[in-house]
Design a protein around this nucleic acid. Structure first.
Length: 417
RNA sequence: GGGGGAGUGUCCCGAGCGGCAAAGGGGGCGGACUGUAAAUCCGCUGGCUGACGCCUUCGUAGGUUCGAGUCCUACCUCCCCCA
């Protein structure tokens, strides 16, 4: 892959940082982005109360779009979430209630302010919600005006549909309509804001192309598609999943400390790639860090963690997380910033297994026992091998807490109150 | 409407002569080795219990049996073939 094959900053940056999977009509889009400000959008469905690391890639594309002088639209899928995108899913998601969608939308919307500059801060970014136009559609009018341009023969050939049909899994008529609504969104954003480019993950290609066709038919307009690759770790795992669940972007779901830790634990082979995608560090700086060998690469991982955490949680929270990690892992010190659980029924001679369950480190006494047998539980950094170990009042440190550690990385401070 | 097949440890896939807490794999967790990495190796992976043991689990509800994931009946869900 050769760099700098584009004239526009926008495509150059996306290409050199590894964001591009497919582009429709790259030359035409490049010329347009070179000569004028392009308005582009990405849709985000409101299926969860927050976006997670998996969506970060999309958000970064909007970020670079705005940074290179164009206009990003973050489209909230208030309407499309009521339908449910079948792309990439092998079974239909259960329907979400209106109230839940509304709730989720609030959580998701909040994230964009950290990456994009909206009008309230003098920027040109736009926040839209497709519920605004989709909820008002009249069925017969919609069929006549829009539905006439969609060929069932073609729709059946799309991956999102074919997957379900091939596997003989249910695909409801409701979901079948998703791609039509998404195509309509594209056209609507063109009408309202002159939007001619839709970005998205590679699984969205089919849906986006539908929008391009519709734009041509309705307005004889030239629309563009640009998709990003599906990012997996070098070991093949999908991004954003850990034992504890998804790595959410909202701080109330995943603390800045845990978020920092997620990135700190990146595999060696992924560090450079992730720095290009998930930080705003200049490429030259990244190349310099890429030269680090062996254990030194940990320094690069810390920078990766701090930079990514800064984007989402702010520079200060990121520095704090880095410091907590440094104190905990490199000095073995007891940092007051570790997750702390207040325990009101603590008493001397409390069983360790009960305490471990109480602070949420394990979910049952049996699990705690197995862990102790395997040497995986520590009290104040000392491995305990006796299942019936009792905590004593002298286990409480001068800071007024007992540090419980599961494995090498999960620390919890038990605070008697 | 007729005929056939399937639903297993609530993470997933998947074996299972009437004695089964139920093979195996993936995933996950812990340990060793390292660098808070990857790979590799070892251990664990229903609940309660110090332990004997007890309790709860194989789509749902009944039944046969000393004993049922395994046999019988009804029901639910999914799939295939014929109409």
């Amino acid at each position: 892959m050769t760099m700098s094959t584009y004239k526009s900053d926008f495509l150059n940056i996306l290409a050199s940082r590894g964001f591009i999977h497919q582009v429709s009509e790259p030359e035409a889009l490049d010329a347009l982005a070179h000569s004028s400000a392009v308005t582009a959008y990405i849709g985000f469905d409101c299926t969860a109360p927050s976006l997670h690391v998996g969506s970060l890639l999309s958000i970064m594309m909007l970020y670079w779009l705005q940074q290179t002088g164009h206009r990003p639209i973050a489209l909230m899928g208030g309407g499309t979430t009521r339908v449910g995108d079948p792309s990439g899913k092998d079974e239909s998601r259960k329907l979400l209630t209106e109230a839940l969608i509304e709730e989720n939308l609030k959580g998701i919307r909040a994230i964009f302010g950290k990456f994009l500059t909206f009008a309230d801060r003098g920027g040109n970014a736009i926040m839209a919600n497709n519920a605004e136009w989709l909820n008002k559609l009249n069925y017969i009018d919609f069929l006549r005006d829009i539905g006439r341009y969609f060929s069932i023969n073609r729709m059946l050939a799309f991956d999102s549909v074919k997957l379900r049909l091939d596997r003989e899994q249910e695909l409801s008529f409701l979901e079948f309509n998703y791609m039509i609504l998404q195509a309509y969104d594209f056209v609507e954003l063109y009408r309202r804001y002159g939007c001619v480019l839709q970005l998205g993950g590679s699984d969205q290609w089919g849906n986006i192309v539908n929008g391009i066709d519709l734009g041509r038919r309705l307005h004889n307009a030239q629309f563009f598609a640009l998709t990003s690759p599906l990012i997996t770790t070098s070991s093949g795992a999908k991004m954003g999943k850990t034992a504890a669940g998804a790595v959410w972007l909202n701080a109330d779901l995943v603390s800045p400390y845990d978020y920092w830790q997620y990135w700190r634990n990146t595999e060696d082979a992924d560090v450079v790639r992730f720095m290009k995608l998930f930080t705003t560090l200049p490429l030259g700086e990244i190349e310099r860090l890429a030269a680090l060998k062996g254990g030194e690469i940990n320094e690069a991982k810390k920078i990766l963690a701090t930079e990514t955490t800064s984007l989402v949680h702010g520079r200060e929270a990121a520095a704090q997380a880095a410091e907590t990690a440094r104190a905990t892992f490199e000095e073995g010190a007891l940092s007051a910033d570790l997750p702390t659980v207040e325990v009101s029924d603590f008493h001397p001679r409390m069983r360790l297994i009960d305490a471990a369950v109480r602070v949420g480190l394990v979910s049952s006494n049996g699990e705690a026992r197995r862990l102790i047998r395997g040497g995986g539980l520590k009290v104040n950094d000392k491995t305990i091998s006796d299942e019936s170990h009792l905590l004593e009042s002298y286990d409480v440190t001068p800071q007024g807490v007992i540090k419980l550690t599961l494995g090498r990385k999960r620390h919890v401070l038990l605070k008697p109150v």
